[in-house]
Design a protein around this nucleic acid. Structure first.
Lengths: 215, 215
DNA sequence: GGACTTGTCTACCAACCGGTAGAGAGGGCA
DNA sequence: TGCCCTCTCTACCGGTTGGTAGACAAGTCC
């Protein structure tokens, strides 16, 4: 299932660089699907058509492969969100753009959100390698929420915690497919992903909304 | 770390039954902390003061141990939530009671929420073993949300999806500690768990709130 | 006392895992 | 031609894992 896919990461270079990127892509898939300890180097390598020892030529240890995957994933999601934010000015447009970017990424790369979650499971050290590039975006988001609160357009709350809640709402709705399936017996088709996005958008919108008429 | 703990599961029986429960408790801890494939039988057994082969006497395979853990965890969380709901009548009191029950369980058993998440990661089959008992509670919750919407006290939305969003908000805030740490450099003390609960309650309250004055 | 059950152990095993050593193929280049 | 560099391979290793076989001790029941 989920056969070979062409270039989900950045532009490919010559020779070995191309293989390097293919290995990272496959590693993100494997780590997301089976977890770090559940995925094996042989499996990742053979999915790229090579042997484990060749993989170890590119990445000397499993941990090095993880680190490279974390960095690449962080860069990818940063690029995706930044691109999605372009031209969006209002508070709500920007929030919706971020959600949409993440969902679109999840649609073309289903294991990606699970890899993010696995990174957070592996502890703060691993997660911070992922969020290196993302930090600037995070600070922008907190500032943005704070401004919205000051302007009375967003419910007043600790902006960092609010951002954290929004994170869990979006990532959770992408990674907890089993829960959703158990609740409504849903098959994980594209249609249901779209519907989930709509529901998350609605949910987030009402969570951000300021309380009614607090004179 | 996290030395021996006394009876987090149900009442203990005589002889082997007691050891059985201790093993399940430790398995939930280990599976939650290290994941299913990351946890080893030897480690679980020796944490209970016995050898791996003795564990295999109680549970013939690792998978059997997982199944027993899933069932036990499902029963435990069902019991906890049911007890917390007693005497709570208003919509909001009931929602808050559920959140509080889960947070209290997480406080005295930190690996528990991670085990729940691991169960959902292992696929629908595993997760359904966990939610067997929980199904009645889930249907009650959906009915409850629907009634609240009809009465105009809760924002109108698909009640099952809404419940799913609430699930991800609560479980996410308990399991994504690394994310929170990366955001605000927080240590995982008891105080911060309390604060997280307050934030979740606030978040959920505003998410449930109906839109202002839709005449 | 002897059979049976229950619980725990030692001793192994095959499979798999991450990682090492080193050979060889092929191309670029002086 | 000969050298070097890049890439891929076969062969192997030590450690760990889930799981099996079987001995042994302590009741318990007849």
């Amino acid at each position: 299932m989920g056969g070979p896919t062409g270039r989900l990461l950045s532009v490919s270079r010559t020779g070995g660089e191309k293989r390097r990127h293919a290995l990272i892509e496959e590693a993100i898939r494997a780590f997301g699907r089976d977890g770090y300890s559940g995925a094996s180097l042989e499996q990742i390598a053979s999915a790229c058509g090579i042997r484990k020892q060749t993989l170890l030529y590119y990445f000397p240890t499993k941990d090095a492969l993880l680190e490279a995957s974390l960095r690449a994933a962080g860069e990818r999601v940063t690029r995706e969100i930044s691109a999605g934010l372009e031209g969006k000015e209002t508070y709500w447009d920007r929030a919706e753009a971020v959600i949409h970017s993440v969902f679109r990424l999840a649609e073309q790369w289903p294991e990606f959100p699970m890899f993010i979650r696995e990174a957070s499971r592996l502890g703060p050290a691993a997660f911070e390698q992922l969020t290196g590039d993302l930090e600037a975006l995070q600070h922008r988001a907190v500032r943005f929420l704070q401004e919205g609160m000051d302007a009375g357009e967003i419910r007043k709350q600790d902006p960092t915690f609010l951002l954290f809640q929004l994170y869990t709402a979006v990532v959770g709705s992408l990674t907890e497919a089993s829960v959703l399936r158990a609740m409504i017996g849903e098959d994980k088709s594209r249609v249901s992903l779209r519907r989930r996005e709509r529901e998350v958008v609605t949910f987030v919108r009402s969570a951000l909304q300021p309380p009614p008429a607090e004179a």
